[in-house]
Design a protein around this nucleic acid. Structure first.
Lengths: 394, 394
DNA sequence: ACGCATTATTGAAACGTTACAAACGGGGCT
DNA sequence: AGCCCCGTTTGTAACGTTTCAATAATGCGT
């Protein structure tokens, strides 16, 4: 067991990391000594402009980062002032078009890329979007799809996505506050929103750009992207009723999340309208472990008044239901039916096939990214809220 | 359809983002005007030290970020020089212990957090780990688990994880080069490593810290974390043989990835040793769409010389196999068996249950993070390579 | 030619931090 | 007493950018 300590200037508790090795393979110990010679196909020759500090690669433990082109090197090459170069690259109309072109050419030739740290220090803007992610509970593809969509929306804008772990048991507001107070990003995106989510309230107060995945019940409008879980639940109930099912069952997310409410409303309303009931167990939620969920369902399905229709809110729930159904010797489509919400192609791989509705999380991620960009651009999006409808597949 | 444009000073192609709304709900338009009054439970009172720029919140479109405590404010409060404060907070032994304590106290009182941008500008270190992620192909939990493990390893170290999208069809080396050249991070982590991965070669040349998920065949050692796919394949073959299976089938990842080779070696060697064959189709890989894979498998399973044992390299492959088996009227455990590699709890939810081995991707992520930290700390980890063994569950 | 209003460019300062070299004070030694 | 040296502390400069105010260059009318 080896350990390494990393300095922690943030004032957070430092900790010692340790490696548990299963096997260590020692490869042939060829000395890996190479000069800092960059591959020649790289960017462009550093130009004859007088780059300072020609070489100091000997002592420095950090690799000799071949001094990057900067505004100054461009200024030197073009004979202009640094200020002019800066403004030219920003396409400032105060700068003559010809000059702008000249500067741009020089910048391209040198392979100039602005230094993020310097920009950030000067302007206070980070060009970072913080994505709060629950790293414990989300299952299957949601993280992947959310990030994928977000990245799509941000591609080419200069913004990058940073993952901000949102562990359970932690104060979720504190996480957001840290981002705002220490300016860790220009905007925040998070999910698992609550009806009176303190994060939303705080971010609104601070005027800090954000988009939540899920609505709140604040009267103050704020940007959000949500899936119409109420519609999903309603349609699912109707579908099961159409199949002649009368005793429905649905497992909800933990009650503190907004979408748990929506699901409940949708299902209860639809069931009541048809004069049947939709059972919603208290003891168990979507965050309950698979093992427990299956055990509970097995028990429930072996009772005389067992449900004959199950609404799977998400893939794991649906699969758990199918497993329990199978374990009880029942057959979906025969004595019981399952309608599920899906976010990936996983049910294409499941047998028997069941009715599903799609929640396109990649689209959600993309929309959140786009909405956040607009919010950060200063657009008034307090009225801008996007509700995605379930895509019905039966 | 609405559109917004974001300035793009990076010189990358700018693009217009567009929003496709499914439904727009207009919430009640309560004016969301609040003062920048921060919640009082926040960090700490800003101290009586002379913070410059008392207020300029009127005109600025950006929210009035209540001027943060800085080294200077601490210096003012303690009557020390900025330099001293800086070194004291860095626990520099040149600074008297009493002074250090004094400074630390003042820093805590003011709620000081060092400005990342300034540190970064000055030191050239970003405190960011770039995680290259293929956002198209990875399936199910791998992204999630990898990020989760990585975050665990980095928690409390001051490093944060930034997602660097690694889209298919793009020049993967170019992505890494961009990170290094524009210093987007202090280290890189990536997966889907190739036997002679140009990224590894480049990063070694540059002396840039990285850890790859997967080995290479370079003679120069470099840090990597890998799963022993060869062992997995061997054990899977042996398991199927033990069940009396004689005609095995395994679908490989695209041939250019290292782990495709390892899987092949392991399976072929084990099969040859037992005098049977392990079929590896050319036409189809793990990156083939589920639909196509199932179709192919259905076709294959309906031929007279059909395989009687399938090795599922990953959850999707195994589920596709199970689906095809079911579609062909076969029963796992009866005429055919499946052994799969799993990375999530998903097979606990599958019926019938099959034999699986676990590739702990969260552990992989964690180990990669820890290894990267050590690499960045300057430790010579050129010899440090971690091979995780499959956890056998049968 | 002159002044005046634009237009185009520039210098200096600043963002918050760290690195370097220099200064300070005091004690121990000769 | 004088000297040197060590343990502490400090001033200055720099990282690369943007912004403000000020300057230089042009055009125009009179």
């Amino acid at each position: 067991m080896v350990s390494a300590e990393i300095p922690d200037p943030d004032g957070l508790a430092s900790r010692v990391v340790s490696l548990h090795f299963t096997v260590i393979i020692a490869a042939k110990a060829t000395e890996a000594k190479q000069g800092g010679k960059a591959l020649s196909e790289s960017a462009a020759p550093p130009s004859k402009a007088d780059a300072r500090s020609p070489g100091q690669d000997a002592a420095s433990s950090r690799p000799a980062v071949r001094s990057r082109p900067t505004l100054r090197t461009i200024a030197a090459e073009t004979g202009l002032a640094v200020t002019t170069v800066s403004r030219a690259l920003a396409e400032d109309p105060h700068i003559k078009a010809a000059t702008r072109a000249l500067v741009r050419a020089a910048a391209d030739r040198q392979g100039y890329v602005p230094d993020r740290a310097a920009q950030r220090l000067r302007t206070g803007r980070t060009r970072v979007v913080q994505l709060l992610l629950n790293l414990d509970h989300e299952f299957l593809g949601v993280t992947h799809e959310l990030i994928g969509g977000l990245s799509e929306a941000l591609a080419g804008t200069g913004y990058s996505v940073t993952i901000f772990p949102d562990l359970i048991g932690e104060d979720r507001l504190a996480r957001v506050r840290r981002i705002v107070e220490t300016r860790l990003g220009d905007g925040v995106i998070f999910n698992r929103t609550e009806p009176f989510d303190p994060r939303v309230r705080y971010l609104l107060e601070q005027g800090f750009p954000f988009v939540s995945h899920g609505r709140t019940e604040f009267t103050t409008p704020h940007p959000w992207v949500d899936f119409d879980n109420e519609a999903f639940a309603r349609i699912a109930v109707e579908r099961l009723i159409a199949k002649g099912r009368k005793r429905l069952l649905m497992i909800l997310p933990p009650a503190n999340f907004s979408f748990a409410q929506h699901l409940r409303w949708g299902a209860v309303a639809a069931a009541k309208g048809a004069g049947i009931i939709c059972e919603i167990p208290e003891a168990i939620t979507l965050d309950t472990s698979e093992r427990e969920t299956i055990a509970w369902l097995r028990h429930r399905l072996s009772q005389p008044d067992r449900p004959d229709g199950i609404i799977g809110v998400g893939e794991v729930a649906a699969m758990a239901a199918l497993a329990a159904i199978s374990d009880c010797g029942l057959t979906p489509g025969d004595q019981i039916d399952v309608v599920a919400k899906r976010a990936s192609a996983i049910f294409d791989l499941m047998r028997p096939r069941i009715d599903t509705m799609v929640e396109d999380l990649r689209l959600a991620g993309r929309t959140m990214g786009e909405t956040l960009l607009r919010t950060m651009a200063g657009e008034d999006v307090s009225q801008l809220q996007v509700l995605h409808q379930p895509l019905i597949e039966f």
